[in-house]
Computed example of a mutant assay.
Amino acid sequence: MRRFAVSVTAAAVALSVSGCSSLGFIGRSQAQDIAEINVASPELRESKPLPSEYSCKGDQGSPPLRWSSQPLSKAKSIAIVVDSHTKPRSAVHWVLYDIPATTTELGPNAAEDPPEGTGQARVTSGKVGYEPPCEPTGSYRFTVYTLSGKVGLPAGSPLPAVLKKIAEQTIARGRLTAVNIQ
């Protein structure tokens, strides 16, 4: 286990983009030990370009993802947050939550056919589901969180509310980062 400040970077990004950074939970850090999650994909490689099929130039939707970690007895659900840091702005492209804790992978285009019982937040663009990145240069982060509970908000809930619930319940985290669009 590593020592992390439990915070969802995407929450800060989304809230600053949406003008909600005055909410009290931004900037608060409750340091605690959280486990690491290994995140992989048959289509993505760490620090390599995001294949254009998974960008706004393609038609593949969300890429397939796989994850693993040590067994976590407190794990109740999984959440996935896809965000970007590009010039001129940052954005959240996808939030899928309340994934069963026993799930260890999602196939291609899971945003179109998400696992039963899951929810997808309204992202920075206002869309519910996967909003493919478009900026040719930037950092595209696919972060998987293990949570100690369910987010429990209805599908289409506002991004700040969902990200706050994820931040409050994170017990493990891992990330795969693609750089630029191929």
Rank of each mutant, 00 (worst) to 15 (best):
R3E: 13
A5R: 08
V6I: 15
V6E: 11
S7M: 11
T9N: 12
A10C: 07
A10E: 12
A11S: 14
A11F: 09
A11R: 15
A11W: 10
A12D: 13
A12M: 11
V13H: 07
S16M: 04
V17M: 00
S18H: 09
S18E: 12
G19S: 05
C20Y: 12
C20I: 00
G24W: 07
G24A: 14
F25T: 08
F25M: 13
I26W: 04
I26L: 15
G27M: 13
G27F: 11
R28E: 13
S29H: 12
S29G: 10
Q32Y: 04
Q32L: 12
D33H: 12
N38G: 07
V39S: 07
A40W: 06
S41M: 07
S41C: 09
P42K: 08
E43T: 11
L44A: 05
E46K: 13
S47L: 15
S47A: 15
S47D: 15
K48T: 07
P51G: 06
S52D: 08
S52K: 14
E53N: 07
Y54A: 02
S55D: 05
C56F: 06
C56A: 15
K57S: 14
K57Q: 12
G58E: 09
D59F: 09
Q60R: 15
G61W: 10
W67H: 06
S68G: 11
S69L: 02
S69R: 08
Q70G: 08
Q70E: 15
P71R: 12
L72V: 05
L72P: 01
S73Y: 05
K76R: 15
I78F: 03
A79P: 03
A79N: 10
I80R: 01
V81R: 03
D83R: 06
H85Y: 07
H85S: 10
P88Q: 08
R89I: 04
S90P: 03
S90T: 09
S90K: 11
V92E: 04
H93A: 01
V95C: 11
L96V: 14
L96P: 01
Y97G: 04
D98E: 02
P100Y: 10
T103K: 13
T103I: 11
T104P: 00
L106N: 06
L106F: 08
G107H: 06
G107C: 02
A110C: 12
T118M: 03
T118Y: 06
T118I: 03
T118G: 02
G119K: 03
A121D: 03
R122N: 04
R122S: 15
R122D: 02
V123H: 02
V123I: 15
S125D: 13
K127P: 00
K127H: 15
E131M: 07
P132N: 04
P133V: 06
C134W: 09
E135C: 02
P136S: 09
T137M: 13
G138Q: 05
G138H: 06
G138I: 01
Y140H: 14
R141N: 13
R141A: 15
T146K: 10
K150C: 02
V151Q: 09
V151Y: 09
G152T: 06
G152D: 08
P154E: 09
A155W: 00
G156D: 08
P158Q: 15
L159W: 04
L159D: 02
V162W: 05
L163S: 08
K164L: 11
K165G: 00
I166S: 02
Q169P: 00
T170Y: 01
I171P: 01
A172L: 10
A172N: 08
R173S: 14
G174I: 12
G174D: 06
A178E: 02
A178K: 04
Q182L: 10
